[in-house]
């Protein structure tokens, strides 16, 4: 067979020998033997020093491309494994989280004492909060809100400053406790502004019903949508207002409608966290109408100086705006 294979390999077979060698090569049983026969010629061919410098750049290019493609596939497989790993990690994290939540729940159930949470906003900043019952609160700048981490019987929160509430309907009343009295509601949206330092209190109702329980008195005020209760020197009065001027702040807009100059300045101070002083009492008689949305404080000051016969000055060191009449 060795000789026959040799003749086959060298293409010098006698026609009658072909069927025998073909059958031999085609039989799987002879594989090891065929490999052995091949080996001899392989050695010769590979170690041949004098071969034609046959080359095939196109094939080399094809090989390189296949390798590149193969690399991409491998990289994708790696990414797949990585993704799979991420999923496993996510499941583990979720499981741990659930364990924690259960433990936390048990801990809070055992502990019926209300823990209070206080949120304060600095001047020039606003925030919004979701309360444990799902009610939404927009807290204006320079305000403080205190609420329990879990409402047990009543929903009582305390406020100093200004906030807009969108209260989730619920069987237990929602009470905003202020220095001037309690604002009691069920499910409604309203704005409360309560400034002990300024002796200012106003509650504006957008929708629903609000009961204002005046502190240290038997008086109760019931508000209908579009009404506002304001503290005056004589007590509390109710008036009809355009609510947008009182609630627009939560949407990042300051809207003024014939706003007296002192109130206007105070709002600006809170909004921008700046100090604005003026010493001409004549300015107190001015009022301002307009909307501030994206303007910077310098732009606002520029507007003021154009609308009224005033000029302004900013002191870099004290960070105070001074307004003077011309």
């Amino acid at each position: 067979m060795k000789n026959l294979f040799k003749k086959y390999y060298r293409s010098v077979l006698v026609p009658g020998d072909f069927p025998e060698i073909a059958a031999f090569l085609n039989n799987k049983k002879n594989e090891a033997e065929v490999f052995n026969l091949m080996k001899r010629y392989w050695e010769k061919e590979i170690n041949e020093t004098n071969v034609s410098s046959k080359t095939n750049p196109a094939l080399l290019e094809r090989i390189k491309n296949t390798i590149l493609l193969d690399k991409h596939k491998r990289a994708q497989r790696k990414i797949k494994i990585y993704r799979w790993g991420l999923r496993v990690a996510a499941v583990i994290v979720l499981a741990l989280l659930l364990c924690n939540i259960f433990q936390l729940k048990r801990a809070t159930q055992n502990n019926l004492v209300e823990t209070l949470q206080t949120i304060s906003t600095p001047y020039g900043a606003k925030t919004n909060i979701t309360l444990p019952d799902g009610s939404l609160v927009w807290l204006n700048s320079g305000s403080t809100l205190t609420y329990p981490t879990k409402f047990i019987s009543n929903r009582i929160i305390t406020l100093e400053g200004e906030a807009f509430f969108d209260v989730e309907k619920n069987n237990s009343p929602f009470i905003v406790s202020t220095n001037f009295g309690d604002v009691i509601v069920k499910g409604t949206s309203f704005n409360v502004k309560t400034l002990a330092s300024d002796n200012t209190f106003e509650t504006t109702l957008e929708e629903g019903v609000v009961v204002f329980d005046v502190k240290n008195s038997q008086n109760e005020v019931v508000l209908k949508p579009g009404e506002q209760v304001v503290k005056t020197s004589k007590g509390f009065t109710i008036k009809n207002v355009d609510i947008k001027y009182f609630t627009s702040w939560k949407d990042g807009k300051l809207m003024f409608n014939k706003e007296p100059f002192p109130d206007f300045i105070k709002k600006l101070e809170r909004w921008y966290n700046v100090k604005i002083v003026y010493n001409d009492p004549k300015l107190d008689e001015l009022w301002y109408t307009g909307t501030i949305e994206m303007e910077s404080i310098s732009e606002v000051m520029e507007m003021i100086s154009k609308a009224a016969p005033v000029s302004y000055h900013f002191n870099n060191k004290t960070r105070i705006f001074t307004i003077r009449t011309k």
Binding site: V51, T55, K64
Partner: peptide, 22 residues
Amino acid sequence: DSSLEELFNYYYPRLYNFSKSF
């Protein structure tokens, strides 16, 4: 990559002859 190219240049004609004979 360049070593693959060197291998190709050396082995391709030799492998080709072997394959053709077989």
